[in-house]
Design a binder for these strands. Structure first.
Lengths: 96, 96
DNA sequence: GTAAACAAGTTTATATTATAAACCAAATTA
DNA sequence: TAATTTGGTTTATAATATAAACTTGTTTAC
């Protein structure tokens, strides 16, 4: 019937982050912030959750002297995202 | 960019309820409960929220001697649902 | 050279939400 | 008539999302 939606992805900001990362090799914190329009704090928290879930990886380094946080989606993240999309379609089909 | 998702619809159970109601003339509490697999308490609360938002209407009556709560989606609800679907597609497109 | 402003985040606090557990009233069944 | 079931509602709790406040370091202006 209605499949369970992955609660990690069923969140506006986390979904937006995953959506960006799904379409790009890697994205840094600032870029994600710009693309999603999120506040830094919110983004930081949600990135942590996605990392803890193994959906993304975070690589901290420096760009010149400034800190830089680069994020990438993992294969597990790709799959979870894809599953989420499929599951969601079950909910949306009635409204086509 | 990423459109804001209607928080009233971005909820697993409320979305399931709306999805059912979008495809049917009317549905009563028991039917919604069966279709969604929700607990009564949760369903009751979420129906209230959808009603307060004007997305559905609730008509209380009796079927024989037993109480019956019939729900229908409103035009506003239809539109909100449709907008939500459109908005969500922006998030999902990357994962096609 | 030092004070002010900015960059890139993190931590913490708050407010909202989702959810289930407990409860209630009436009807049916044993 | 006692127990169970139906059809819910109310209340309590636990999780979540989010923003506000803070930190560390860098660049710019004076």
């Amino acid at each position: 019937m209605f499949p369970k939606l992955d609660p990690l992805l069923h969140s506006e900001l986390r979904l937006a982050v995953m959506s960006v990362l799904a379409g790009v090799e890697e994205a840094d914190f600032t870029y994600l912030k710009k693309q999603t329009g999120a506040t830094s704090g919110n983004l930081s928290v949600q990135i942590d959750k996605l990392t803890a879930a193994g959906y993304i990886t975070v690589e901290k380094g420096f760009k010149g002297k400034m800190p830089r946080t680069a994020c990438r989606i993992t294969p597990a993240g790709q799959e979870a995202f894809s599953n989420y999309v499929d599951a969601l379609k079950e909910y949306l089909s009635a409204g086509k």
